[in-house]
């Protein structure tokens, strides 16, 4: 198994490996399937083939197949990954489990609802593009006004899955969204900091930093949480006698 950030091999047509995929089912058992994997075959490709050829009842989530929608997070041999951008490169048995701690709908499919419970209300999903950040001449067509892009966070839940905190905690994904919204909307800072200045807010973080290490998109939630904590501490200092 390798992450997609490995270089694509220069040549194609490498010998296929026959991978043994062992999938945790709803009843707790494991179903075992063999899949021929070529050099570009991902875990998601294997799941698609298993469902089509072997078991139509297999449940898993997927949509974009290129790491943009955030639906296909799974635990593969103990590692939290996006199934769509993780290639199968070995014939070692591959154990697939649903992305704990999210509630399981069935097999590998989880209910993402808890992820969104503590996101800031009305937060924008757009950000300014960093295209030509140092340009001094007007670069955007006048019809555009300014270039924008989507937030990096694809809301896959992997950061929540690796977070070791078991107390009530808004979690790294929601707090990173608070961090981004405050960066974009300084006028909302007081309102939003008040919502996360609580035991289950930034104070709930044990600074294990697992979230930043595991995030497939480089959002670095732990960094956002540290910045938010400093802002809250600074506001408290301002108001103390």
């Amino acid at each position: 198994m390798s992450r997609s950030d490995d270089r694509a091999p220069a040549a194609h047509g490498a010998p296929e490996v026959r991978a043994e995929i062992r999938i945790r089912r709803t009843d707790g058992s494991r179903s075992v399937f063999s899949v021929d994997a070529g050099e570009y075959t991902t875990i998601l490709d294997a799941l698609e083939e298993i469902r089509t050829v072997h078991d139509r009842s297999l449940l898993y989530r997927h949509s974009c197949h290129h790491g943009s929608c955030g639906t296909c997070g799974v635990i593969a041999n103990g590692e939290r990954v996006l199934a769509c951008t993780t290639r199968i490169t070995s014939d070692e048995p591959l154990d697939l489990d649903p992305l704990a701690p999210f509630p399981v709908i069935g097999d590998l499919a989880v209910d993402a609802t808890p992820l969104y419970a503590d996101f800031p209300t009305d937060a924008s999903y757009l950000r300014d593009s960093d295209a030509r950040p140092n340009a001094t001449d007007p670069v955007a067509p006048e019809e555009v006004g300014r270039f924008t892009r989507f937030e990096n966070c694809i809301e896959c839940g992997i950061c929540v899955s690796v977070c070791p905190v078991v107390r009530p905690f808004k979690g790294p994904a929601a707090l990173a969204a608070y961090g981004r919204e405050i960066e974009k909307r300084p006028d909302r800072e007081a309102e939003l900091l008040a919502e996360i200045d609580a035991p289950d807010g930034v104070a709930g973080c044990d600074r294990a930093l697992n979230c930043s290490a595991a995030c497939p998109l480089g959002v670095y939630p732990a960094k956002h949480i540290a910045v938010l904590k400093r802002k809250i501490d600074a506001r408290r200092a301002d108001y103390s006698p």
């Binding site: 949509s63 974009c64 197949h65 290129h66 499919a109």
Partner: peptide, 9 residues
């Protein structure tokens, strides 16, 4: 899953 056919891809 929703949008798991052509749409998401």
């Amino acid at each position: 899953e929703l949008t798991s056919g052509t749409t998401g891809r």
